[in-house]
Amino acid sequence: MSDQARVLKFQIFRYNPLKKGDKPRMVTYEVTEAPGMTIFIALNEIRETQDPSLQFDFVCRAGICGSCAMVINGQPDLACRTLTANFADGEIKLLPLPGFELIGDLSVNTGKFMRAMSERVESWIHDQHADDVNYDKLEERMDPDVADEIYELERCVECGACVSACATKRMRPDFLSAVGFMRLARFALDPRDKRTDDEFYEIMGNDDGVFGCMTLLGCEDYCPKDLPHQTQIAYLRRKMALIR
């Protein structure tokens, strides 16, 4: 901790589409850095003391819920767990995550996108008998390693960083994107999901699905949960290619 606190310079994208006459612009705010300061803390300070209209989304502020992805000095990341100390020159430029509907300033509607994604990939266990299970009985056994592997793919927090970093998505608005592939890979691995490969093919066996991926792997580079996009997309692609 140094004695003289730095003055950080935040350049923040401002635009409220619901305010008549408002135009997109960058606005600069200065904040005195405190030890351990995160972008979450800094943005709240700006809102509370400088501009109460500033919009952004945080929920857990602990890197767990996926609410706060934004473009930080050119790279999508979770703002709540980004320390201001990481930026040597004290200049931090913040933009909303591209590829999503803008609500205002740094707030985008990832929720709407993710619900549509879940509906499209039918993000649930497909088992006709799931609701007839007698829950008094011992649960269905599962190999401990399989359980762990499923969890590895289920760690996605729907933050949208992969979607915003995807070149294919920019060209194909309906491209399912990495977050959707991760979800499909998760269910394809799960022995409780009785879907056949053919059924999975119906969902992703096209150019808006896994065949459209140009493997530029922006997704893997920016995923804050380090999900294995490359191997899983390649796996899904091989699996699907074998079908038809």
């Binding site: 649930w124 266990i125 088992d127 799931a130 299970v133 829950y135 008094d136 009985k137 649960e139 269905e140 056994r141 599962m142 190999d143 401990p144 359980a147 762990d148 499923i150 969890y151 289920e154 799960d190 409780r192 999901d193």
Partner: peptide
């Protein structure tokens, strides 16, 4: 509670398992 956890297992929670 035991029923709740078993139902969630059927709904997809990858509970850690006994080895």
């Amino acid at each position: 509670a035991p029923k709740a956890i078993r139902q969630l297992a059927a709904w997809g929670v990858p509970w850690s398992r006994v080895r």
